[in-house]
């Protein structure tokens, strides 16, 4: 069920400002790809174009093609709402819905997308998703409690459960561990290893060790220069990026010379 992603010559604008230019990459199904790079280089922006979330900001536009198993998600007549059903997202800060219980948070996507569902189906989805997010054992006795009452790491796993409950093809993660403590981070990283068996995962991270630990492929983004748009410097096997990168700028970044 996981999908391949092909980006071809993506240019991303905020109004007239070109934020990221000429990004081209391919991401294989059932793999983990990490986006790394210094702050403000546009890696989160690129991530958000993959499920058309950047459009939430008014004035943001994209040119180029973004293909999901060959289907252009920016094609005419494509509804961004449907794109987002297919490509789930986990955010930097855990953001469970504060008015909902743990249970309702998990099924929020399903319920809001398609209205009535049978209780047994929902129960099944909740358990499957929470197990999938490695949270079931911790919360199964208090599903009716508010989601906001969980710890930060648990909240983030709840958000992952919420994202996978709608059975997406791809899971985007925008610095999912940056607001978490090391133990919660470890839990999420373990989870990513399990999730990649079912989903194509793209993760933005500031933490190069994390990229090295969880991903098979790594893309390095950088600003083309001061005041210039961000660009994709190179994308390659993680092993290669961290040991023997092709580009000098990648070498400089991973060896800590800037960023």
């Amino acid at each position: 069920m996981a999908k391949r992603i092909d980006a071809k010559n993506l240019n991303i604008y905020y109004g007239k400002f070109l934020a990221v230019s000429e990004v081209t990459f391919t991401i294989a199904p059932r793999s983990v790809t990490a986006f790394i790079g210094p702050s403000g280089c546009g890696k989160s922006t690129v991530l958000r174009t993959i499920n058309r979330m950047h459009e939430v900001i008014s004035g943001a536009t994209v040119e180029g093609d973004l293909l999901l198993d060959g289907e252009n998600i920016y094609g005419a007549g494509i509804d961004p709402v449907d794109v987002r059903r297919t490509i789930g997202m986990v955010f930097q800060r855990p953001n469970p819905f504060p008015t909902m219980s743990i249970y309702d948070n998990v099924v929020a996507g399903l319920k809001l997308q398609s209205g009535r569902l049978r209780k047994s189906e929902l129960d099944e989805t909740v358990e499957r998703s929470l197990r999938g997010a490695n949270l079931w054992e911790e919360v199964k006795s208090r599903l009716a409690k508010p989601g906001a009452g969980l710890s930060g790491g648990q909240q983030q796993r709840l958000c992952i459960a919420r994202a996978i409950a709608v059975e997406p093809q791809v899971l985007l993660m925008d610095e999912p561990c940056s607001a978490l403590d090391p133990i919660s981070t470890l839990a999420i990283e373990d989870l990513i290893q399990t999730l990649k068996e079912k989903y194509t995962i793209v993760i933005v991270t500031h933490n190069m060790q994390q990229a090295a630990r969880v991903s098979e492929r790594t893309a390095f983004f950088n600003l083309a220069g001061v005041g210039k748009p961000g660009q994709l410097v190179e994308i390659d096997d993680t092993q290669k990026i961290f040991t023997n990168p092709t580009d000098q700028r990648t070498e400089d970044y991973i060896s800590g010379r800037f960023g």
């Binding site: 499920n51 709402v81 987002r84 789930g88 955010f91 800060r93 929020a108 996507g109 994202a163």
Partner: peptide, 13 residues
Amino acid sequence: PNELREASYALGV
């Protein structure tokens, strides 16, 4: 918070 709106949009709502 806008994050809640985004979380919802990201679920395809």
